[in-house]
């Protein structure tokens, strides 16, 4: 029906899904670009800025970094695997995403118990906003993963492969955002 959904068009060299995900990521870059610029501006003009290591839990943050990277790695394996195996890999990556969110929840709970809430200072305000938005992206990706893992029966393997391919790019983006967050908040 609609041409080039997953096959590349000769003169543009891409498929609709691939082009679509790149455009989506471009807008995401603008979103986080705006947020990180705001962070930079607020930090430069702040009179005091706590060292993230002392406030946040470096251990939990580092653990989450590993979990997220692992998750993306598993998902990328699904790209090249053939079907039932690929589906298992996607589900495994979903489990890892859940672990990430679990650790994040534990971290948030601990911080809130200590009275470290967004309204305390600009450091915590930016921390909660950026990690919260990042966590929303993980949740969104998780839902999309499940949708891709269960869609094969409905839309066929070719379409599913296209979706997995697009999602794998999305996860790399989510990782990059996390790494920047990790450096800016946990390591500084």
């Amino acid at each position: 029906m609609i041409p080039y959904t997953t096959t590349a068009r000769a003169d543009t060299g891409v498929s609709n899904v691939t082009l679509g995900i790149w455009l989506f990521l471009a807008s995401e870059v603008m979103l986080f670009g705006a947020l990180f610029s705001s962070y930079a501006l607020l930090r430069v003009s702040a009179s005091a800025w706590p060292a993230g290591r002392d406030v946040l839990s470096l251990g939990l943050g580092a653990a989450n970094t590993v979990v997220l990277m692992l998750m993306t790695g598993v998902f990328w394996r699904a790209r090249s695997a053939s079907w039932p195996a690929a589906q298992r890999l996607i589900l495994a990556s979903c489990a890892l995403a859940l672990v990430f969110l679990g650790i994040k929840t534990v971290e948030y709970a601990g911080e809130i118990r200590q009275g470290l809430v967004p309204s305390v200072n600009t450091f915590l305000a930016t921390y909660f906003t950026l990690t919260g938005l990042h966590a929303l992206h993980v949740i969104g990706g998780l839902v999309a993963n499940l949708w891709a893992a269960t869609g094969a029966a409905r839309v066929g393997l070719e379409m599913t492969a296209g979706r997995v391919c697009a999602l794998s790019l999305y996860w790399v983006f989510v990782d990059v955002v996390w790494l920047i967050i990790f450096v800016l908040f946990y390591l500084s």
Partner: peptide, 15 residues
């Protein structure tokens, strides 16, 4: 490309 910064701004104002 122009809308995402407003999205960011709206999130910050909501916070």
């Amino acid at each position: 490309l122009a809308f995402p910064p407003l999205q960011a701004a709206a999130v910050l104002q909501l916070m």
